[in-house]
């Protein structure tokens, strides 16, 4: 195989598939961070979602139920984080790490006996008329419905944060929790809800990997995607549209390196496999100069007595 054998339309279509789990997890984390909470447990919630979704859809035969279970699984795990950081006022960095370590162990335990099993296939939705457009049609409009869901979730998050009162309150809590508290907003309650939303999104993203992208179950299969999603939020300067852009960029890098591996380029496979992580670092370095978008209370615990 040569580089010329890579089909650009197929490449771009699989780029969307690779970008979707990242987008889901990163949008969830964006909302969490906008509320002033840094949840480093995305990787743990994703992998838990991946196995919950996988197990339920294998046992019920319904991929939709699987996705639902993944969201519930991710949210349940994030509830642990919420209890630790919002009620027991534990350090958010440490609690997030705990969540990831715990999630990796939990998913490995739950996933026993699911290795090598094939999940029920996920139907593709060919949008009428739109899917007939040359080039764009096969890339954008013949995907599964989760891709569209992820897109509309991004749209919705952007609109809610920018134009609604709820979004304004969420941002106020994230910028200055003391002021928000003084205005009578329930800081802890709002943050817990944001954390649950983030957990559900991460769970969905994980299930997308195990049910649609791969699709099968292996231990530790998220392989750092949760951490890349965290980096993506920084890359995006906490703006939903830039999360979408970043997800496509990272999805593209990943798909491209996989295609280059398959095409048998002279670069060793291991060095190609490193590239998404190296590019994440590079992007972080470039973007870290601009911290204007970061919520001011990010990572700080709130207790009404302070």
């Amino acid at each position: 195989m040569e580089i010329s054998s890579i089909n650009p339309i197929l490449l771009l279509a699989s780029l969307i598939v690779a970008a979707t789990p990242l987008l889901l997890a990163a949008i969830g984390e964006l909302v969490v961070e906008k509320s002033g909470v840094l949840n480093l447990g995305v990787e743990g919630m994703m992998i838990t979602g991946a196995i919950c979704g996988f197990a339920i859809s294998v046992n019920t035969g319904s991929p939709v139920l699987g996705l639902l279970a993944a969201a519930v699984g991710g949210a349940t795990l994030s509830l642990l984080f919420a209890v630790l950081t919002q009620f027991a006022l534990a350090n958010q960095v440490a609690s997030g790490l705990a969540l990831t370590l715990f999630g990796l162990g939990l998913s490995a335990l739950l996933g026993q006996g699911y290795q090598g099993v094939k999940p029920p296939a996920f139907p593709h939705v060919d949008l009428p008329i739109l899917s007939k457009i040359p080039v764009l049609g096969p890339i954008l409009f013949t995907q599964d419905f989760v891709v569209y869901l992820a897109f509309f979730l991004t749209l919705g998050t952007w609109a809610v944060l920018k134009y609604t009162r709820a979004g304004l309150i969420l941002r106020a809590v994230g910028e200055n929790h003391d002021a928000a508290h003084a205005l009578g907003y329930k800081v802890v309650r709002i943050r817990v809800m944001a954390i649950l939303f983030g957990g559900a999104c991460a769970g969905l993203g994980g299930a997308y990997i195990s049910l649609i992208r791969v699709p099968q179950w292996t231990e530790g299969m998220t392989a750092g995607i949760g951490w890349i999603a965290l980096a993506l939020v920084v890359f995006a300067s906490w703006k939903p549209w830039r999360v979408l852009l970043g997800a496509c960029l990272f999805g593209g890098v990943n798909v491209l390196q996989l295609n280059l591996q398959a095409a048998g380029v002279a670069i060793p496979v291991e060095y190609l496999a490193m590239s998404p992580y190296l590019i994440t670092i590079l992007v972080l370095v470039i973007m870290s100069a601009d911290r204007s978008g970061a919520p001011a209370s990010l990572g700080r615990s709130f207790h009404a007595s302070n």
Binding site: L80, V83, A88, A90, A94, F102, G105, A108, L109
Partner: peptide, 26 residues
């Protein structure tokens, strides 16, 4: 006993540790 159970067990330890730490400061 599956090895993942031990991994989970170690993860749990960190969880409980962070949770009970609240007693030190409050």
């Amino acid at each position: 006993l599956p090895s993942a159970a031990i991994q989970l067990f170690q993860g749990m330890l960190l969880f409980f540790l962070l949770a009970v730490d609240v007693l030190t400061n409050f």
